[in-house]
Design a protein around this nucleic acid. Structure first.
Lengths: 221, 221
DNA sequence: ATCCCTTGGAGAGTGCCACTATCCAATCAT
DNA sequence: ATGATTGGATAGTGGCACTCTCCAAGGGAT
């Protein structure tokens, strides 16, 4: 198919597709003539993934490019690639304050200790090992520090329930990824599902809060 | 305290504080002279909450103003205010496609049915009643539709585990809110904790995915 | 009292960044 | 032949959270 059709099928304007091509988020089509290229279903798939990353995942274009690169990195084995792709996902830009500097923030150091302790309680043996290299780890520490700074300090005992729920969440997520047979598809699914289920999870949480609040306080209905 | 001190203690530049004042996110200080106002700890608290909403919750200034208004709305009782404040929180701007229009999107209608069915399975009797008025509900439906459009259609059976986890999450959240005695503080805590625990939850999920992936595939360590 | 600093307030400007609009020459479709 | 389309390059737009610049009216130390 040509660009016009790709645009129509994806619902994305050609100008934007050109932009993605320029930014390296989408591979150039297969060259047919000097002035035309052909795009296939792979391009369509990719385009939808790009949209998911950028619009749902709210990640900057540059980051999306890195994530996509991780998905396609043939130089590492399947399992590592899966881990690498998930690790490349930003968890929350605002909180990802790289503390590789002098790290003189007392609040942050306390948060870090709390995170380590949480991992231990959860029996997570792999996560701490990777350490600060992982965006998710940095965001977690930043978020714990932010909670304290905002006046809601949280103990390990406060975090534990969330950790346990996250643990189950991870199992559920990986279960879903394993439905896909093809290794490449698995990696892509891991990225897509991680990002796309995020709003599902967060909105369900809001609804659950409302539900629970009603359960406790509402006499009527 | 005067603005300079408020700025120093909160770590927010005076120019930004002035901006928040202008936008109505922060109440004017208590007028001392014709050219000076005094700010108190309440202003400091509020300022930190504003930062949490805008930077961590990534919500637009206008939305933050609405959330804050809901917190302070004295015209309704405590419990309703708690619900209203949480309902005012946007769950994900990009997916909040108000379908109050003609709603002719087939995908969206299917998603809506799926959401209703999910609520039924979960035994959530309150959430569906509120219906489309709640941002979280609209986001949920939008997210389910988005999943389908991206090529990852999800059945109710896929959503159920997430729903059950969210249910527990809601209980945990409200437990935490109930630690605060003062009604006003409870509402503020509900908003703050909902927003501030979001990155905690999402980053823990990433780490849990990595952990689970390692558990399954890693022979070494 | 004086002299410089700070304050609240208002308006315009900045920087970022995803996208979009405009052109263009080469080529395709008919 | 001829009007539309394509890939490509370049410049522009819009939204939005700030941030800068002024300014007149007070303060505070001496």
């Amino acid at each position: 198919m040509r660009m016009a059709e790709l645009s129509e099928r994806s619902g994305i304007p050609t100008a934007t597709i050109k932009y993605y091509l320029r930014e390296g988020l989408l591979r150039p089509g297969h060259r047919v003539t000097a002035t035309q290229s052909a795009y296939d279903d792979g391009h369509l798939r990719r385009l939808r993934l790009v949209r998911a990353l950028i619009q749902v995942g709210r990640m900057p274009v540059a980051t999306a490019r890195e994530v996509l690169a991780a998905i396609e990195d043939d130089s590492i084995d399947h399992h590592s690639r899966l881990g690498a792709a998930i690790a490349a996902l930003p968890a929350d830009g605002a909180l990802d304050a790289a503390f590789d500097a002098d790290e003189l923030d007392e609040e942050t150091r306390a948060a870090r200790r709390r995170a380590e302790e949480l991992f231990e309680e959860l029996g997570w043996t792999h996560a701490p090992a990777r350490g600060a290299s992982e965006a998710a780890y940095r965001v977690l520490v930043g978020a714990i520090a932010g909670l304290a700074r905002t006046g809601y300090p949280c103990e390990v005992s406060d975090l534990l329930p969330y950790g346990r729920l996250a643990d189950q969440l991870g199992v559920t997520d990986i279960d879903m990824v394993e439905r896909y047979g093809d290794p490449y598809e698995q990696v892509e699914a891991a990225v897509a599902l991680t990002v796309l289920y995020e709003p599902v999870l967060l909105s369900l949480r809001r609804l659950a809060e409302a539900e629970e609040s009603n359960r406790r306080y509402s006499s009527r209905s």
